[in-house]
Design a protein around this nucleic acid. Structure first.
Length: 425
RNA sequence: GUGGCCGUAGCUCAGUUGGUUAGAGCGCCAGGUUGUGGUCCUGGAAGUCGGGGGUUCGAGUCCCCUCGGCCACCCCA
């Protein structure tokens, strides 16, 4: 039923079983990234609103949860824009850039950061889309070369494979390629963002759909027609890098050289990685300056991760330019893809079922005794129907149980001696 | 942010064209039967019908608002 008291929209409570699953996935991801030398950091959930609203967060900026200024006189009339000065972060990239600017002197020249933390977006919830969700984000700050991209992609694919999530495709593109394509078609710089929004829907709308939407947006005909021609060439190349690059107009092909380096690098480091060139890939964030990527899995519509290079952002906080590149995976989307068979922690779980007549001290004494020999022990009051109760304990992962009643004596001897421990199931 | 579908006991659901104290199964509790604490029998606790207004003599059933879930769009992890 719909409970009268619920968690806020799009945000969830996690029952013990689900919490455990998330914890196990989290542990695995953390280990994978640590092995690549990434160091975990933590930043506040909140950042200054002015920084979040830099104008480079794309549509996400419309989804910011804003926090009212403290100490505002409730009687005082204040314009909404002035009423808030902080906001909940909508991703982990901006907080990282700020973090780096704050602590540069204490960090290595090339800093590899790992962040696993919640972010918030005021969207309409749906399956796999929440208002509070976790991102697992790795970033390389201070490395201008393709090593960053190659490592980020390899590390992330490895992290997913360690969870049994294989079959992930990494789609690659580059902001420079996109700009060059639009220039070659003859679009005015002011029309770019609008064209990009439409272009990004190529895989969803198809050629005709994109063509129709360009017309709908009343974008100039000549450039639009040239763009559709380019797209036809791209579509025919089906993600193959060489074919894609051959289909690029004007200076776009030379812009794509960085992508070739990334592709070659990943394939040398991790043969068999599924990489696809997608010159129509845009991605929302405005702060990307070079490569952009998106991770997809056949069992989930949309992406399970994404990232790219944002060389300009740290410089905005620090004054000096510092190249940076990051990739994050959507934690709850990945958790959904992890097979249930992986959620079996190897622990000896024992249930001590007791009647009301057993003295509390005796119960805990037995509990401690079994904990002492390495078990995880839970005291559970006996229900009327033991059979159903044991069944429930079994599905919860308990492997052994014992009943304690009035005749149960205090522990004596060693280990479970004196207790009638029985296997469950 | 726009549009659509949905919301009845702990769980799964029934509730007829609006009409008496809102039902079932499972689970839970109590008692009894019983070679097993299983089965079976009897009884019981438990529902603000998501919430709030309205229409009506009367609404779980109609209307409006609202909260939440799901779907499409938008966008994204």
């Amino acid at each position: 039923m719909a409970a009268t008291v619920q968690a806020p929209r799009g945000m969830r409570d996690f029952l013990p079983g689900e919490k455990l699953r998330r914890e196990l996935v989290l542990r695995s991801i953390r280990e994978s990234f640590s092995s690549y030398g990434y160091q975990e950091i933590e930043t506040p959930a909140v950042e200054e609103l002015s920084r979040l609203e830099s104008g480079e967060g794309g549509d996400n900026e419309k989804l910011i949860f804003k926090i009212l200024r403290r100490g505002l006189d409730p009687e005082l009339a204040v314009a909404p824009v002035a009423a808030a000065d902080l906001g909940l972060r909508f991703d982990l990239t901006l907080p990282l850039a700020r973090f780096y600017a704050s602590h540069r002197g204490e960090l290595p020249e090339v800093f590899r950061a790992l962040q696993i933390a919640p972010v918030w977006r005021a969207e309409r919830p749906q399956r796999g889309r929440y208002r509070q969700f976790h991102q697992c984000d790795i970033d390389v700050v201070g490395e201008p070369g393709a090593v960053a991209e190659v490592e980020l992609i390899a590390a992330t694919l490895d992290a997913l494979e360690a969870l049994g999530v294989g079959g992930v495709t990494a789609r690659l593109n580059d902001r420079g390629v996109l700009s060059a394509i639009l220039d070659a078609c003859g679009f005015a710089p002011g029309a770019r963002s609008e064209v990009l929004v439409t272009l990004d829907k190529l895989d969803k709308l198809g050629m005709d759909g994109v063509s129709a939407e360009l017309a709908e947006r009343e974008l100039p005909k000549g450039p639009s027609e040239r763009l559709v021609e380019v797209l036809a060439g791209l579509e025919a190349s089906e993600g193959d890098f060489d074919a894609t690059f051959a289909a690029l107009p004007g200076r776009a092909a030379e812009q794509a050289e960085r992508l070739v380096a990334i592709r070659d690098g990943v394939l040398e480091a991790k043969p068999g990685a599924d990489l696809v060139a997608d010159a129509a890939l845009v991605r929302g964030q405005g702060y990307y300056t070079g490569s952009i990527f998106e991770l997809r899995h056949p069992d989930f519509p949309g992406s399970i991760g994404g990232g790219g290079r944002y060389d300009g952002m740290v410089g905005r906080f620090l004054g000096t330019e510092v190249p940076a590149c990051g990739l994050s995976i959507g934690f709850e989307r990945v958790v959904e893809l992890v097979d249930a068979s992986r959620y079996r922690p190897e622990v000896r779980k024992v249930a001590l079922v007791y009647g009301p007549e057993v003295p509390p001290g005796r119960l805990v004494a037995w509990q401690r005794r079994l904990i002492g020999v390495g078990a995880q022990v839970r005291l559970v009051p006996r229900r009327r129907n033991l059979v159903h109760q044991l069944e429930a304990l079994g599905t919860e992962g308990f492997g052994e149980w014992a009943e304690l009643d009035g005749s149960t004596r205090a522990p004596a001897g060693a280990g479970a001696a004196g207790l009638d421990l029985r296997d469950l199931r």
